[in-house]
Structure formats: structure tokens, C-alpha cells
Nucleic acid binder design. Sequence first.
RNA 1: GGAGGGAUGCCUGAGUGGCCGAAAGGAACAGUUUGCUAAACUGUCGUACUGGCAACGGUACCGAGGGUUCGAAUCCCUCUUCCUCCGCCA
Length: 423
Amino acid sequence: MLQVNYIRENRAKVLEGLTLRNFKQPELVDEIIKTDEERRQIQTSLDNLSAIANSSAKQIGELMRNGKKDEAEALKAETTSNKELIKNLSEDFAAAETKLHSLIVQLPNLPYHLVKAGSTPEENEIVSVHGEPAALGEKALPHWELTAKYDIIDFELGTKITGAGFPVYKGKGARLQRALINFFLDHATAEGYREMQVPHLVNEASGFGTGQLPDKEGQMYHVGIDGLYLIPTAEVPVTNLYRDVILKEEELPVKNTAYTPCFRREAGSYGAHVRGLNRLHQFDKVEIVQVVHPDQSYEVLENMSAYVQSLLQKLGLHYRVLRLCAGDMGFTAAMTYDMEVWSAAQQRWLEVSSVSNFETYQSNRLKLRFKGATGKTQLAHTLNGSALALPRIVAAILENNQTEKGIKIPEALVKYTGFEYID
RNA sequence: GGAGGGAUGCCUGAGUGGCCGAAAGGAACAGUUUGCUAAACUGUCGUACUGGCAACGGUACCGAGGGUUCGAAUCCCUCUUCCUCCGCCA
């Protein structure tokens, strides 16, 4: 959520940023400024009236203590008339705040200056490409055939238990999942992230804090009876750990990592592109999250990107790094790098990680601040990234590493799987 | 699930209708003193909105939301959460 004061003082910049994003309702900005103006006017009147009421109440107390009952009663009568006014103004004030909030929540984050205009995935910038595509013969199979061939992932079985998009991992398939989770977690820990285990269901306040609510309401599974949501990513619980927290400056940067399953409704996406492991309703992911000093957040973003890339390199995957264009970025991000691995059998790039700097967009919602040497509290910057999301990594490993002898497990992973081939 | 007891500032903890944005102690920070460390002494020490060029003010907040009252940390209602006991259970 953008800060009202910032919007008020930087109207032109805000509009410019929104335009870059192709934001459809720039008129919201002026509406926000206008509502804020009203809000402040009401507050001024309300504060003045309250000040009078407070001093009257004090006087009445004074008079009572001195036994001047008549005078006290007279003053009481006078004050009563103010009450109605204060009550009305308070209601107006609350209404203005609610309105302001509901408006400001509709504005996405502003893109960082390096982010280019654009609205479609095709307009994303390719920052770099690493490795070579695996050279596969004519007989190369897509992963959904490989998983059936080696009986390691069962999509139909999952359908019976739950529905489409909830696969069952079997034997070496299950073991591969566990190996990847440990591999990612071990590396994150070595990189200085603290491993956390967090709830997989979150309340509404948490959903709001990281920006899933109210924007992406329909993307999350909702446990209505308890008012809870299944997490679409560990970002939600891990970042919300710091909701309503004022950190000491020396506690920064905060670096946490967590493995969680992720649940996404993915309403309305069907077809060839979502076959197999390409898009699931439940999948596993290791996430890295940082809370940092505003001066450092872009440096940290680069570090996180480099870290994620180091994982892809260790797994021997051909990948590329994209800087998302303004219109393709998530609502809450100021800058995002996507990492995509090459799926040799499908002949397409698969997104396996998204690393973003949210600047103060989340921290403003979360009230996540730090107190600096000057004693001033200010909003921290938050960042997070997948490191990594499993299904598409699995898809790429299966497809790119298929051989006559079976699926060859990447060298770095063998000590985690305990086997070299899936056959 | 049932019964009872709590929730106050960074921490401990006082406060049961006005003089309380909140005692006291501790921690932390700054300074004085000191050969160094320690101790002692002095000062600072919540958040947010808002008025003002500033100096300096105003308002709100004592788990959350409502209510009573001229006036609420204090009384009433609802909710959340923690603790103790009972029941159930991985």
C-alpha cells in the first residue's frame, strides 16, 4: 500500500508510475488526494471539539471536588450539546478513513526506475541466459509421460483423492521431492537464512498484510467456517511474522527461509499449458524472505537473484533471467526478476522463481518498521523469492535428463536422493 | 467442549471513575564523576494522525470492537488470546 503522504506530495510521480504499469484507473489518485483532504479537515474540527470537551470534563471534575455542584451541572448541560456534534464528526471521520483506505488499497506498487513499460509477458526484458538447451533426440518425452513411464507421479490417483491438480508422488518421485526440499533448505541455511516452520493456514489480517487480500481473494482456498486461508506461498506467513513489529536497525537484515506446500485455486486456467506439473493446485516450494534497510534493498534483490541462480546452476539447468515489465509485475512488487528453466521436451520456458522487492508496499500494510540511530521509526523494505518452486524444476530435470538408462539425477542432488537414476 | 483467572509502555509491575499517556523498578541510550572496568548521580526513554516556517501545540490509543458517563486503563456487553483445572485426543 502506498503512503498517503507520498501520494499527496508526489502526485505526478505516482501517476507516471501507474501509467507505466498500464493501470486502468489513474483517477483514483485524485480521489485519494481529495478524500485525504476531507479527512484532515474533519480531523481538525473533531480534534478541536474534543479538546473543548476534554477541558470541560476537567473543569467539571474540579468544580465537583470543590463542592460547586450548581456550576458543575450548568457546565454539564453545556457539554451535552457538544456530544452530538462530536459523535457525528467521529462517524464522518471513520467514514472518510474507511473510504480512503478502500481507495488506496486499489493502487498497485510503483515500478522502480529500472523497470520498463509494457503490459504483456512478451515485453519482459531478458537480462541473461545461462547454459545450453539439453540436446534430446526425436523420442524425447514430455514429463507427464515420463512420470507415468517410471511410475513416480500419479495425477489420476490425486484426482480420485482430491481433484485435478493434486498429484500423488510415488517411490523415487516422492524421494526426489524430499531431496529437493532438503537441498534447497540446506543451501538457504548456508546462505545465512534462518529456517522456519510456519502455519499453512493464515487469517485475514495476514492475507491483507502481504497483499493477497483483498486483491487476490479468489486465488486462495478459503476455510470459511474458521475464516482462514490456505497459503498460496510461504511469503504470507513468513513475512507476516513481522506484522506490527518495530525492529532495531541492527537487527536488519532479517533473513528467513521456509519450506511449505502452496495452495492455489488457479481458477480459470486449463489447457495444454497446464498439463502435468506445469500448474498445480498444491505444490511444494522453499521460499526466502528478507526484511532490510531501504538503502540496501536493491543490492539485496541482486543477491537474492544471484543465489537463486546458483541453485539452478548446481542443478545443471538451462535457464534465463527476466526483468518483468511494469505491466506484468505483481500488484505489490516494485521490481521483479523471474527465473525460467528450459523444458527441452515441451520446448518452452517454465517459470520456477520470482524474486521481488516490495519496497515499503508490504511493510506499510504490515506496519513493519525499524528504529534507526536517529530514533526515527521508518518503514523497512521487504523482499522475497522462490528458492525454488519444485514442480517445474522436477519437470525440467525429468525432461532434460532423460536417457536410455532412465532419468539421470543431477550430480549435486545425488547425496540427497540416494540414487543416480530413476529407472 | 466445561469451569475459573489474566491481557497496562522494551521487560517486570502499580493503578477500580476526574489530578493517568499512565507510578515504581529494571533494561537501553546520552552526559557527569572515575586511572580502567564497575558503581554512583543527572537527563532521555511508546505509537500514530494532525496544526504550525519553527518554537510549540491538539487528538487518539492501557488485547480488539461496541456501550454507560460531563468524564473510562478503571463500570457493562461481545470477541480474540494466554494461563490453571476437568473432559477429549495426536
